[in-house]
């Protein structure tokens, strides 16, 4: 639904009995009785422990992300990302029966379909027949007996693969835009996220300010796996969102 269509609806201003005008009038009356207080400007977040040699954002990111139970994997530089990812997923174990892939993950960052030879040098960045089925993930076949296949609905997948817009060092966060597939980011029990090289921001503010220029409809900041301590104050993971959150830092 487009923005202009929503605004055309008569109830879109949701103004029951002039509620908007009444609320704003009261707010204006309140603010008029009080001096206008200035904005304090930017918050200076803490300096690095040793300002002379501040750690690289990537180092801080790994430290913060793993301290929140996130996992970090580094691809083998001697192999193509596809080859590496395919073996990495195969190494995750038996629970990985199917993979869902975000709509914005480029072919070169997707694992091989099960019928493709994993070490074929020609696949890196190439156009193989399986690739066109990645997007949107919900369009794929259901419950295939194959041990590994592409494009299953995310609710049936054991692994989801996404592409981060960037990462944040000071909070250990991955920034996931809704131009990927949200269900892939949230439903599979294992979430693997590619972080493009050079996209680790030192500060959250810097990342959000850059993101502001191209803000998608929805953004998720994921800082480790899903957690809850609501039962007996004991931390459990994977309550609603993924139980494992694995950041893959492209070199």
């Amino acid at each position: 639904m487009s923005g202009s269509a929503t605004r055309d609806r008569p109830e879109s201003r949701g103004d029951l009995g002039g509620a908007r005008a009444r609320i704003l009038a009261r707010v204006t009356r309140a603010t008029a009785t009080r001096g206008k207080l200035p904005h304090p400007g930017r918050l200076e977040t803490p300096p690095a422990p040793d300002p002379a040699t501040p750690p690289a954002p990537t180092t801080t990111f790994v430290k913060r992300f793993t301290s929140q139970c996130g996992e970090v994997a580094t691809p083998d530089p001697d192999r193509s990302p596809r080859d590496w990812l395919t073996s990495f997923i195969n190494g995750l174990g038996d629970e990985v029966n199917a993979i869902a892939i975000g709509a914005d993950v480029p072919a070169r960052l997707q694992p091989h379909p099960p019928d493709m030879p994993p070490a074929d040098a020609g696949t890196a960045g190439g156009e193989s027949p399986g690739q066109s089925r990645h997007a949107p993930a919900v369009a794929g076949p259901r419950n295939s007996p194959q041990p590994l296949h592409h494009a299953v609905p995310p609710e049936h997948a054991g692994v989801g693969i996404s592409l981060a817009w960037g990462a944040v060092a000071e909070t250990g966060s991955l920034i996931l835009p809704s131009t990927g597939t949200r269900a892939v980011q949230l439903l599979p029990p294992v979430h693997i996220i590619w972080v493009p090289a050079g996209r680790v921001f030192a500060r959250l503010e810097d990342a959000l300010l850059e993101l502001r220029a191209e803000l998608p409809a929805g953004v998720g900041l994921h800082s480790g796996p899903s957690k809850s301590a609501d039962i007996g104050q004991t931390v459990v993971t994977g309550v609603h969102g993924p139980g494992r959150c694995i950041a893959v830092l492209e070199s």
Binding site: M1, A103, D104, V138, E170, T171, G172, G220, L221
Partner: peptide, 27 residues
Amino acid sequence: GQPIGCFVSLVQGPASAPGDDGPEEVH
């Protein structure tokens, strides 16, 4: 005592880009 919540959602509006499986309407 966390540096940030495990998940933060930033909601600007309904899904509009191709590939976005988010809500059709946001109120």
